[in-house]
């Protein structure tokens, strides 16, 4: 296996809420993943997946713990961390009034891709994602599927070693969701490290090399699908998930 791309140690996040007081959204999460691997975070809504990934992308600062991306700590070198990753989620939107080409170029430049190589990179991505016909149309005019392609293209515009996909298939139709899965698989094959969060069991089953089950801010189990099956004796991920989640609640 290749070197470790992401390493997360004891990552926690506490929020202050107006009426509930302190909320521990993420509570001591540890994991690591490498290039050429798809690492899945599986959990229900509000389990802490998005918060974990946002801390990894340095949008949020951890309350305690640390994480490194390509050896850079999210606490000390947030810019270098962000340069090494591409972050995609259903809530990261595109600028409606830029064209597809301008969007990709913008993100390549902002992420520090060598200026001299930007044009070549943009041409390459437009070709890869089959955007030729629409490259000069404004993003607001594009169809849902096209927008999705532009979004992915902007995520990888600066060719980062780590790609984070936070619930990427939320709100997509079947064809677009399958396309998304295909693209994510592709990235793994090209040696990227992919972290992928979802609450859809079948997606995790199909895509992930390793799965971490996250519930109420903690990782309950982390292994390959086979490993999880052996540990619990269940065949389907749904059952495995319910098994751990229930255990956790009884343990409280």
């Amino acid at each position: 296996m290749s070197e470790i791309t992401v390493e997360v140690r004891g990552l926690s996040k506490v929020f202050h809420d107006e009426s509930r007081g302190e909320v521990r959204a993420v509570d001591g999460v540890d994991f690591a993943c490498r290039g050429g691997e798809i690492f899945g975070l599986l959990g229900a809504n509000g389990a802490g997946k998005t918060t974990t990934l946002r801390m990894l992308a340095t949008i949020l600062a951890p309350t305690s713990g640390n994480a490194t991306v390509m050896g850079h700590s999210v606490l000390d070198e947030p810019e270098l961390v962000r340069r090494s990753l591409g972050f995609y989620s259903s809530s990261t939107a595109l600028y409606p009034r830029l064209t597809a080409r301008e969007t990709i170029e913008f993100f390549a430049r902002v992420n520090g891709f060598p200026p001299a190589d930007v044009d070549g990179r943009v041409r390459e991505l437009v070709a890869t994602f089959g955007l030729d016909k629409y490259a000069d149309a404004r993003v607001e005019k594009l169809s849902q599927g096209m927008k999705q392609k532009v979004s992915i293209a902007r995520t990888v515009a600066h060719d980062p070693p780590l790609l984070i996909f936070d619930e990427p298939t939320v709100g997509l139709d079947v064809l677009n969701a399958l396309e998304m899965q295909r693209v994510i698989g592709d990235f793994r094959n090209r040696g990227k490290c992919v972290i992928f969060s979802t609450h859809i069991m079948s997606e995790a089953e199909r895509l992930c090399d390793r799965i971490a089950i996250i519930h109420q801010g903690s990782i309950l189990a982390c292994d390959t699908l086979e490993g999880l099956r052996t540990a619990t004796g269940f065949r389907y991920l749904e059952d495995i998930f319910v098994h751990f989640a229930r255990d956790d609640e009884h343990g409280d």
């Binding site: 810019e79 962000r82 340069r83 989620s89 990261t92 939107a93 595109l94 409606p96 993100f107 600066h158």
Partner: peptide, 14 residues
């Protein structure tokens, strides 16, 4: 509101 700020914050721009 449009969600593009989060996109921008995940880039290397400080």
């Amino acid at each position: 509101e449009r969600g593009t700020l989060e996109t921008l914050l995940t880039t290397a721009a400080s």
